[in-house]
Computed example of a mutant assay.
Amino acid sequence: MEIRYTVNQKDIKRYTTEELRSEFLVNGLYEENEVKAVYSHIDRMVTLGCMPTTETVAIDKGIDCWKNFGTHYFLERREIGIFNIGGKGSIEADGVVYEMGYKDCLYITKETKEVLFRSDDAKHPAKFYMVSAPAHRVCKTKFIPIEDAAKRPLGEAKTSNKRTINQFIHPDVLETCQLSMGMTVLESGNVWNSMPCHTHERRMEIYMYFEVPEDHVVFHMMGEPTETRHIIMKNEEAVISPSWGIHCGAGTSDYTFIWAMGGENQAFDDMDNLLQTELK
Protein backbone atom coordinates (compact mmCIF):
# COMPACT_ATOMS: atom_id res chain seq x y z
CA MET A 1 0.00 0.00 0.00
CA GLU A 2 1.32 3.41 -0.97
CA ILE A 3 1.31 6.09 1.75
CA ARG A 4 0.84 9.76 0.89
CA TYR A 5 1.17 12.56 3.41
CA THR A 6 -0.74 15.85 3.44
CA VAL A 7 0.28 18.84 1.35
CA ASN A 8 -0.78 22.47 1.68
CA GLN A 9 -2.01 25.01 -0.80
CA LYS A 10 1.06 27.24 -0.45
CA ASP A 11 3.49 24.51 -1.46
CA ILE A 12 1.70 23.31 -4.58
CA LYS A 13 2.06 26.73 -6.19
CA ARG A 14 5.63 25.69 -6.89
CA TYR A 15 4.93 22.10 -7.96
CA THR A 16 5.88 20.82 -11.39
CA THR A 17 3.45 18.73 -13.43
CA GLU A 18 5.09 15.51 -12.23
CA GLU A 19 5.02 16.61 -8.58
CA LEU A 20 1.29 17.39 -8.83
CA ARG A 21 0.60 14.01 -10.40
CA SER A 22 2.66 12.10 -7.84
CA GLU A 23 0.82 13.77 -4.93
CA PHE A 24 -2.77 13.69 -6.17
CA LEU A 25 -3.19 11.24 -9.10
CA VAL A 26 -4.06 7.62 -8.31
CA ASN A 27 -3.56 5.23 -11.22
CA GLY A 28 -2.70 1.58 -11.85
CA LEU A 29 -5.54 0.41 -9.61
CA TYR A 30 -6.31 -2.79 -11.51
CA GLU A 31 -3.77 -5.61 -11.62
CA GLU A 32 -4.91 -9.22 -11.92
CA ASN A 33 -5.62 -10.86 -8.56
CA GLU A 34 -4.12 -8.00 -6.57
CA VAL A 35 -5.36 -5.24 -4.29
CA LYS A 36 -3.85 -1.85 -5.06
CA ALA A 37 -4.24 0.81 -2.39
CA VAL A 38 -3.25 4.42 -1.73
CA TYR A 39 -3.55 5.66 1.85
CA SER A 40 -3.86 9.45 1.97
CA HIS A 41 -3.31 11.27 5.24
CA ILE A 42 -5.85 13.82 3.99
CA ASP A 43 -8.70 12.71 6.28
CA ARG A 44 -7.02 9.25 6.31
CA MET A 45 -8.93 8.06 3.26
CA VAL A 46 -7.86 4.93 1.40
CA THR A 47 -8.47 4.47 -2.34
CA LEU A 48 -8.37 0.85 -3.55
CA GLY A 49 -8.83 -1.22 -6.68
CA CYS A 50 -9.16 -4.97 -7.17
CA MET A 51 -9.55 -7.02 -10.35
CA PRO A 52 -9.89 -10.71 -9.49
CA THR A 53 -9.57 -13.09 -12.42
CA THR A 54 -8.51 -16.63 -11.56
CA GLU A 55 -8.45 -16.21 -7.77
CA THR A 56 -10.62 -15.16 -4.86
CA VAL A 57 -8.90 -12.06 -3.50
CA ALA A 58 -9.09 -10.82 0.10
CA ILE A 59 -9.38 -7.10 0.73
CA ASP A 60 -6.20 -7.01 2.80
CA LYS A 61 -4.00 -8.84 0.30
CA GLY A 62 -0.62 -7.12 0.37
CA ILE A 63 -1.69 -4.73 3.16
CA ASP A 64 -0.11 -4.81 6.62
CA CYS A 65 -3.11 -3.73 8.69
CA TRP A 66 -1.23 -3.62 11.99
CA LYS A 67 1.59 -1.50 10.57
CA ASN A 68 -0.64 0.91 8.65
CA PHE A 69 -3.77 1.14 10.79
CA GLY A 70 -2.90 -0.45 14.14
CA THR A 71 -5.69 -2.99 13.60
CA HIS A 72 -5.96 -6.74 13.23
CA TYR A 73 -8.04 -6.54 10.03
CA PHE A 74 -8.82 -3.89 7.44
CA LEU A 75 -12.34 -2.85 8.52
CA GLU A 76 -11.81 -3.13 12.27
CA ARG A 77 -12.11 0.67 12.57
CA ARG A 78 -13.10 1.56 9.01
CA GLU A 79 -16.10 1.60 6.67
CA ILE A 80 -15.92 1.18 2.90
CA GLY A 81 -17.88 1.82 -0.27
CA ILE A 82 -17.35 -0.43 -3.29
CA PHE A 83 -18.45 -0.03 -6.92
CA ASN A 84 -18.12 -2.57 -9.72
CA ILE A 85 -17.03 -0.91 -12.97
CA GLY A 86 -16.20 -4.14 -14.80
CA GLY A 87 -17.79 -7.49 -15.60
CA LYS A 88 -20.09 -9.39 -13.27
CA GLY A 89 -18.65 -10.47 -9.96
CA SER A 90 -19.40 -10.93 -6.29
CA ILE A 91 -18.29 -9.74 -2.88
CA GLU A 92 -18.44 -11.93 0.20
CA ALA A 93 -18.60 -10.01 3.50
CA ASP A 94 -18.43 -12.19 6.63
CA GLY A 95 -20.07 -15.08 4.79
CA VAL A 96 -22.81 -13.09 3.01
CA VAL A 97 -22.44 -12.99 -0.78
CA TYR A 98 -23.51 -9.95 -2.81
CA GLU A 99 -23.76 -10.29 -6.59
CA MET A 100 -22.32 -7.17 -8.19
CA GLY A 101 -23.35 -6.04 -11.67
CA TYR A 102 -22.00 -3.09 -13.61
CA LYS A 103 -22.27 0.15 -11.59
CA ASP A 104 -23.75 -1.59 -8.55
CA CYS A 105 -22.54 -0.45 -5.12
CA LEU A 106 -21.97 -2.11 -1.75
CA TYR A 107 -21.48 -0.33 1.56
CA ILE A 108 -19.73 -2.44 4.21
CA THR A 109 -19.74 -1.36 7.84
CA LYS A 110 -16.86 -1.36 10.29
CA GLU A 111 -16.03 -4.58 12.19
CA THR A 112 -16.58 -6.73 9.09
CA LYS A 113 -13.69 -9.14 9.41
CA GLU A 114 -13.53 -10.86 6.02
CA VAL A 115 -14.15 -9.35 2.58
CA LEU A 116 -13.52 -11.46 -0.53
CA PHE A 117 -13.70 -10.50 -4.22
CA ARG A 118 -14.51 -12.78 -7.15
CA SER A 119 -15.26 -12.46 -10.87
CA ASP A 120 -17.85 -14.58 -12.68
CA ASP A 121 -15.71 -14.74 -15.83
CA ALA A 122 -11.92 -14.42 -15.75
CA LYS A 123 -11.93 -13.15 -19.35
CA HIS A 124 -14.35 -10.35 -18.42
CA PRO A 125 -13.37 -9.66 -14.82
CA ALA A 126 -15.07 -7.43 -12.31
CA LYS A 127 -13.24 -4.25 -11.38
CA PHE A 128 -13.95 -3.20 -7.82
CA TYR A 129 -13.27 0.45 -7.07
CA MET A 130 -13.27 1.29 -3.36
CA VAL A 131 -12.86 4.16 -0.92
CA SER A 132 -12.54 3.61 2.82
CA ALA A 133 -12.84 6.10 5.69
CA PRO A 134 -12.29 5.82 9.44
CA ALA A 135 -15.48 4.91 11.33
CA HIS A 136 -16.43 5.18 14.99
CA ARG A 137 -19.54 2.98 15.12
CA VAL A 138 -21.20 0.05 13.39
CA CYS A 139 -23.82 0.82 10.75
CA LYS A 140 -25.59 -1.63 8.43
CA THR A 141 -23.97 -3.25 5.41
CA LYS A 142 -26.16 -2.56 2.38
CA PHE A 143 -26.20 -3.45 -1.31
CA ILE A 144 -27.40 -0.62 -3.58
CA PRO A 145 -27.97 -1.53 -7.24
CA ILE A 146 -27.70 1.26 -9.79
CA GLU A 147 -31.48 1.40 -10.22
CA ASP A 148 -31.99 2.12 -6.50
CA ALA A 149 -29.63 5.10 -6.34
CA ALA A 150 -31.24 8.48 -5.64
CA LYS A 151 -31.27 10.38 -8.95
CA ARG A 152 -30.55 14.10 -9.07
CA PRO A 153 -30.54 15.72 -12.54
CA LEU A 154 -28.39 18.84 -12.81
CA GLY A 155 -27.03 21.24 -15.42
CA GLU A 156 -28.14 21.93 -18.96
CA ALA A 157 -26.92 21.33 -22.46
CA LYS A 158 -26.27 25.00 -23.26
CA THR A 159 -23.58 25.07 -20.57
CA SER A 160 -22.25 21.61 -21.55
CA ASN A 161 -22.87 20.13 -18.10
CA LYS A 162 -26.18 18.25 -18.30
CA ARG A 163 -25.74 15.29 -15.98
CA THR A 164 -27.38 13.00 -13.47
CA ILE A 165 -25.96 12.56 -9.99
CA ASN A 166 -26.66 9.08 -8.59
CA GLN A 167 -26.45 9.14 -4.80
CA PHE A 168 -25.60 5.70 -3.38
CA ILE A 169 -23.81 6.06 -0.04
CA HIS A 170 -25.69 9.13 1.10
CA PRO A 171 -27.88 10.12 4.08
CA ASP A 172 -30.98 9.94 1.85
CA VAL A 173 -30.19 6.29 1.03
CA LEU A 174 -28.47 4.77 4.07
CA GLU A 175 -26.71 5.63 7.31
CA THR A 176 -22.91 5.73 7.55
CA CYS A 177 -20.38 7.26 9.90
CA GLN A 178 -18.79 9.78 7.53
CA LEU A 179 -18.40 8.22 4.09
CA SER A 180 -20.48 9.49 1.16
CA MET A 181 -20.21 8.16 -2.39
CA GLY A 182 -22.06 8.51 -5.66
CA MET A 183 -21.77 8.44 -9.42
CA THR A 184 -22.23 11.30 -11.88
CA VAL A 185 -23.14 10.43 -15.47
CA LEU A 186 -22.78 13.09 -18.15
CA GLU A 187 -25.21 13.04 -21.04
CA SER A 188 -23.86 12.66 -24.57
CA GLY A 189 -22.28 15.87 -25.85
CA ASN A 190 -21.73 17.30 -22.34
CA VAL A 191 -18.21 17.59 -20.95
CA TRP A 192 -18.13 19.73 -17.76
CA ASN A 193 -18.55 18.28 -14.27
CA SER A 194 -19.10 20.15 -11.00
CA MET A 195 -19.37 23.50 -12.73
CA PRO A 196 -20.01 26.05 -11.32
CA CYS A 197 -17.29 24.69 -9.07
CA HIS A 198 -16.97 24.87 -5.31
CA THR A 199 -14.88 24.01 -2.30
CA HIS A 200 -16.00 22.43 0.98
CA GLU A 201 -13.70 23.18 3.87
CA ARG A 202 -15.40 20.55 6.02
CA ARG A 203 -14.61 17.50 3.88
CA MET A 204 -12.24 16.21 1.23
CA GLU A 205 -13.21 14.44 -1.99
CA ILE A 206 -11.88 11.85 -4.39
CA TYR A 207 -12.96 11.59 -8.04
CA MET A 208 -12.47 8.46 -10.17
CA TYR A 209 -13.10 8.93 -13.88
CA PHE A 210 -14.24 6.03 -16.06
CA GLU A 211 -16.08 5.41 -19.31
CA VAL A 212 -13.49 7.76 -20.80
CA PRO A 213 -12.86 6.60 -24.40
CA GLU A 214 -9.35 5.31 -25.05
CA ASP A 215 -8.33 8.26 -27.22
CA HIS A 216 -9.81 10.91 -24.89
CA VAL A 217 -8.89 12.55 -21.56
CA VAL A 218 -10.40 14.68 -18.81
CA PHE A 219 -8.77 17.94 -17.72
CA HIS A 220 -9.32 17.86 -13.96
CA MET A 221 -9.10 21.29 -12.32
CA MET A 222 -7.73 21.59 -8.79
CA GLY A 223 -6.01 24.02 -6.43
CA GLU A 224 -7.14 27.20 -4.73
CA PRO A 225 -9.74 29.18 -6.72
CA THR A 226 -7.22 31.95 -7.36
CA GLU A 227 -4.31 29.56 -8.01
CA THR A 228 -5.82 26.83 -10.18
CA ARG A 229 -3.88 23.89 -11.55
CA HIS A 230 -4.90 20.93 -13.68
CA ILE A 231 -4.14 17.23 -13.98
CA ILE A 232 -4.87 15.34 -17.18
CA MET A 233 -6.79 12.16 -16.36
CA LYS A 234 -7.21 8.96 -18.37
CA ASN A 235 -9.76 6.19 -18.03
CA GLU A 236 -10.08 4.56 -14.59
CA GLU A 237 -7.80 7.02 -12.82
CA ALA A 238 -8.62 8.77 -9.53
CA VAL A 239 -7.57 12.12 -8.09
CA ILE A 240 -7.41 13.32 -4.48
CA SER A 241 -8.99 16.70 -3.73
CA PRO A 242 -8.11 18.42 -0.42
CA SER A 243 -10.82 20.48 1.26
CA TRP A 244 -9.22 23.80 0.29
CA GLY A 245 -9.22 23.08 -3.45
CA ILE A 246 -11.70 23.18 -6.28
CA HIS A 247 -12.50 19.92 -8.04
CA CYS A 248 -14.11 20.03 -11.44
CA GLY A 249 -13.20 19.02 -14.95
CA ALA A 250 -13.86 19.06 -18.66
CA GLY A 251 -13.39 16.10 -20.96
CA THR A 252 -12.65 15.81 -24.64
CA SER A 253 -15.66 13.46 -24.58
CA ASP A 254 -18.49 12.72 -22.17
CA TYR A 255 -17.63 10.33 -19.32
CA THR A 256 -18.72 9.10 -15.89
CA PHE A 257 -17.09 9.57 -12.51
CA ILE A 258 -17.46 8.25 -8.97
CA TRP A 259 -17.08 10.72 -6.13
CA ALA A 260 -16.29 9.93 -2.53
CA MET A 261 -16.24 12.30 0.44
CA GLY A 262 -15.19 12.09 4.05
CA GLY A 263 -14.92 14.68 6.80
CA GLU A 264 -17.04 16.71 9.19
CA ASN A 265 -20.32 16.93 7.28
CA GLN A 266 -22.31 14.60 5.03
CA ALA A 267 -24.80 17.21 3.78
CA PHE A 268 -24.56 17.12 -0.01
CA ASP A 269 -25.19 20.86 -0.43
CA ASP A 270 -22.67 21.89 2.22
CA MET A 271 -20.31 23.68 -0.12
CA ASP A 272 -18.87 27.09 -0.84
CA ASN A 273 -19.92 27.91 -4.39
CA LEU A 274 -17.80 29.97 -6.75
CA LEU A 275 -18.51 31.88 -9.91
CA GLN A 276 -16.53 30.93 -12.99
CA THR A 277 -15.43 34.55 -13.27
CA GLU A 278 -13.81 34.32 -9.81
CA LEU A 279 -11.36 31.64 -10.91
CA LYS A 280 -7.78 32.43 -11.82
Score class of each variant (00 low, 15 high):
Met1Gly: 11
Arg4Glu: 00
Val7Ser: 09
Lys13Glu: 13
Thr17Ala: 12
Ser22Ala: 09
Ser22Phe: 06
Leu25Glu: 05
Val26Glu: 05
Lys36Val: 14
Ala37His: 09
Asp43Glu: 15
Arg44Thr: 11
Met45Cys: 11
Thr47Asp: 13
Leu48Gly: 09
Pro52Thr: 15
Ile63Asp: 08
Asp64Asn: 12
Thr71Gly: 13
Arg78Glu: 10
Gly81Asn: 00
Gly87Asn: 07
Gly87Glu: 06
Lys88Gln: 15
Gly89Gln: 12
Ala93Asn: 03
Asp94Arg: 06
Tyr98Met: 09
Glu99Arg: 15
Met100Ala: 13
Asp104Asn: 12
Cys105Lys: 08
Ile108Cys: 07
Leu116Val: 10
Leu116Asp: 02
Ser119Arg: 13
Asp120Leu: 02
Asp121Pro: 14
Ala122Val: 15
His124Arg: 10
Pro125Ile: 09
Tyr129Thr: 04
Met130Pro: 01
Met130Glu: 01
Ala133Arg: 11
Pro134Ile: 12
Lys140Asn: 08
Thr141Glu: 00
Phe143Gln: 10
Lys151Gln: 08
Gly155Glu: 00
Gly155Pro: 00
Ala157Gly: 01
Asn166Gly: 02
Cys177Asn: 14
Met181Ser: 07
Val185His: 06
Leu186Ser: 04
Trp192Tyr: 14
Pro196Lys: 00
Pro196Ser: 04
His198Pro: 05
Glu201Cys: 11
Met204Lys: 06
Glu205Val: 01
Tyr207Ala: 01
Val212His: 02
Glu214Trp: 03
Asp215Arg: 00
Val218Arg: 05
Met221Ser: 02
Glu227Lys: 02
Ile231Leu: 04
Ile232Pro: 01
Ser243Tyr: 15
Trp244Thr: 01
Ala250Leu: 02
Thr252Ile: 01
Thr256Tyr: 09
Met261Val: 04
Asn265Cys: 10
Ala267Trp: 08
Asp269Thr: 09
Leu274Met: 08
